[in-house]
Computed example of a mutant assay.
Amino acid sequence: MMKTNVRSFTDKELLDRVEAIGGKIPNRGKYLCIGVQSKEDQYNVFDDKFYLYDGCDFVMVSSGTTNAGSTALKTFDKYNLEGAAVWRTDQFVEDCFAPGLHKSKMKALRQHSPIEYYRDSNKDNRADQTGKLHKGIIWANMHGVSYDAESNIIKTNIGGWSFACQVWNNMPDYHNMIDLTWKRDLPIDYALLKEF
């Protein structure tokens, strides 16, 4: 796994935090993914972590981003958007993702349930959680950083890979996660936590 700005957590810390924000830990047989967003929020860099659990049993951890990249933050208006979508952190979404395709090109986990999010339109270098809170399905999927099913790359800069998606930058880890989740063909719970 690539080094990130997020500190290390124990399983108990993460699962207790999910419950503290109103989430529930599924029984074994259903996956729970936890995204931990870096307090530092380094601009346009994959500096967050994803943890995958089978019920309360740890499966794997990898790096990625839970924030929009530079393309979304700086040029959202070229896509007729009101601002870059920014997930509200400390949010649990039951059945958030389900196996599907991202842009009809890549095996992914597609948004399956509504999420709460903001629109950041100030074009600075931060993914701001301010202003009106929205809720809906905006196709904020969970995917990797290559459309090549055999890719083993590990990217460092987000660029256009995330407009609101939760993106794994380590493709070997991503392929492993997708293989596991697609085999079950069930919705996956997701908790997005701010580093604590």
Rank of each mutant, 00 (worst) to 15 (best):
S70C: 12
K155G: 01
S62I: 00
V93H: 04
L73F: 04
A127Y: 04
E82V: 00
R126G: 05
L101V: 00
A85I: 05
A84R: 06
K74T: 07
L73G: 06
H102P: 09
Q91N: 03
L109C: 02
S62H: 07
G100I: 01
P99Y: 03
R110S: 09
A127E: 08
K74Y: 08
R88E: 12
R119M: 11
S113C: 06
M106H: 00
S121A: 15
K103W: 11
L101E: 13
N122T: 15
S146D: 06
H143V: 04
Q111N: 04
G69Y: 03
T66R: 10
D124I: 09
W139F: 07
A84W: 05
S63L: 07
D148I: 01
C96N: 09
Y147A: 05
H134E: 14
P99W: 03
T66F: 01
S63N: 14
Y79A: 13
K74C: 05
G83T: 11
S63A: 15
V86C: 04
K107W: 00
P99R: 01
P114Y: 06
G131Q: 06
N141R: 05
I115E: 03
W139T: 14
L133D: 13
M60T: 10
T75L: 08
D124A: 07
Y118V: 10
G69D: 06
L133Q: 11
N80P: 02
R126C: 11
F97D: 05
C96G: 07
S151Q: 05
S146W: 03
K123V: 09
N122A: 02
M142R: 02
G100L: 00
G100R: 05
N141V: 03
D128M: 04
E94I: 10
A85D: 10
G136A: 10
A85Q: 05
S70G: 10
P114W: 09
T156K: 14
Y118A: 08
A68C: 08
E116N: 13
Q111A: 04
S121F: 13
A68K: 04
N67K: 15
N157D: 13
V86S: 04
A68M: 04
V61H: 00
H134T: 03
C96T: 08
N141W: 01
A108I: 00
K123F: 09
G100T: 03
M142G: 00
A98W: 03
D77Q: 08
V59P: 02
V93N: 00
A98F: 10
R88I: 04
W139Y: 11
G100K: 03
G136I: 02
T130Q: 14
T89S: 11
K123W: 08
K132C: 02
H112Y: 14
K132L: 11
W87E: 05
D148Q: 05
N125R: 12
N67W: 14
W87P: 05
A127G: 05
A85C: 12
V145I: 12
T65I: 12
D77H: 11
Y79E: 10
R110G: 00
D148C: 01
